[in-house]
Design a protein around this nucleic acid. Structure first.
Lengths: 229, 229
DNA sequence: CCAAAAGTGTTTCACGTACACCCATGC
DNA sequence: GCATGGGTGTACGTGAAACACTTTTGG
């Protein structure tokens, strides 16, 4: 007990809602808590913010420590400050959401946490604290963001087929899309480029592989354009 | 010095970007600081979050204490946590933006702060701390939000003319809009209703006064609709 | 009667949407 | 040869955008 202040201070934490996608559904990475409160319960990755790091760095650090994930897409979601959201004491939490390429990161990649696992977004255990509310808000934000910013590519491998991309949109937006219209719109943006390569080892006609044109996106973003799928 | 913790803790503050609009431009409410650091400089309204209040309540409280504003529209913007954003010590700040009806709140309404004043958004003094960055982000958010949510009404009187509404959109989005197309689109939403009243004391043809249909908006919001102007 | 802002319709074009069949490949 | 997903074109309707003049009122 070495740090004293004139007024009481809330503890500051970060929480990370980690999304991933595979052939099936939208996935959520959760951590099984090793310590009270809510010991043994599943919760979001996260932890206390150190006094010499930004909240974003804290989120990246906790992600790596608890799940082994590095180099992920991370954006701030919202700051939660309800008085009783933590039973121990006053805790204010800055929530982030992360998008992860499941293809790059094996499920078992967690370093010091064998207790990290992927769950389907609509089928996961009850969460500790107010984490369900954070997940709901993150999912809502993900849907909205996907509509007007090309963030879906953060969830796919470097090279992907248009069917994979469409599947991603359908899963996240919980809808079905017309294949021809989807392909036309996506190609018209100019942001996906043909690599000339095709799928391998598939038991049907191999699909073209495309990649996302990051440079063009940065350029268009500066000029202020509208992206919509 | 009475509060002790095992680890050092950042101080937690709120900052409020307060927007208003009048016949002229988009306005920003600023506070002249009475205390160091940046004594005498202009800054956003805000202050320390008490340990027994949410950040949102802190923002509302500070707004009232420093500017006299009550019952304003308030939304969380972003949480700023750069290490050196405050020269005194580590301070993490949850920023909010507020929309205010200038018609309801006289500029001089500030209670304990004669040091609050409105400035044009593009013509205000240099700001303390990282507050310019916060203002820029808030302005950006305001533009984006205005496009797909009917928040403009928070800045206008209860009863307003369509020209006032159009002027608001033009000022915030920094563009010009076609009068006929604007009126058609706005009326088609069904969210603005004729009051039957007209302007008074104007030196030209009096315009119809409209009001915003809050109930209908709540209903449509639940059903999930798209609003766009 | 003049100034100042209110109010009003039509045409055009682009884009979103709906819709069904053939193609390539592996087994 | 069959199962599986890949890939393609057209017709229709809606909605966004461009555009100019008349009306009302006060001074």
């Amino acid at each position: 007990m070495a740090f004293e202040y004139e007024y009481p201070r809330a503890a500051l934490t970060v929480d990370c809602v980690v999304f991933g996608i595979d052939e099936g559904d939208l996935k959520l990475m959760l951590i099984q808590r090793k310590l009270p409160p809510f010991k043994g319960k599943w919760a979001l990755a996260g932890g206390f913010v150190r006094v010499d790091e930004t909240t974003e760095n804290a989120a990246l650090r906790e992600l790596e420590e608890e799940t082994g994930l590095k180099n992920v897409f991370l954006e701030q979601l919202y700051t939660f400050s309800a008085i009783d959201r933590d039973p121990r004491e006053r805790v204010v939490s800055v929530a982030y959401y992360a998008l992860v390429r499941l293809s790059d990161h094996e499920v078992s990649a967690a370093s010091d946490a064998q207790d990290a696992a992927w769950f389907e977004i609509d089928e996961h255990p009850k969460l500790a604290f107010d984490h369900q509310g954070i997940v709901d808000l993150a999912h809502e934000r993900l849907k909205n963001t996907l509509r007007y910013r090309p963030i879906g590519f953060e969830l796919l491998p470097e090279r992907f087929t248009l069917s994979q991309l469409q599947h991603l949109y359908e899963v996240i937006l919980d809808t079905t899309l017309d294949k021809r219209n989807f392909r036309r719109r996506v190609l018209k943006t100019g942001l996906v480029i043909e690599t000339g390569e095709v799928q391998k080892d598939v038991a049907h006609r191999a699909a073209q592989l495309f990649s996302f044109d990051k440079e063009l996106y940065q350029k268009l973003k500066k000029e202020g354009f509208n992206f919509e799928v």
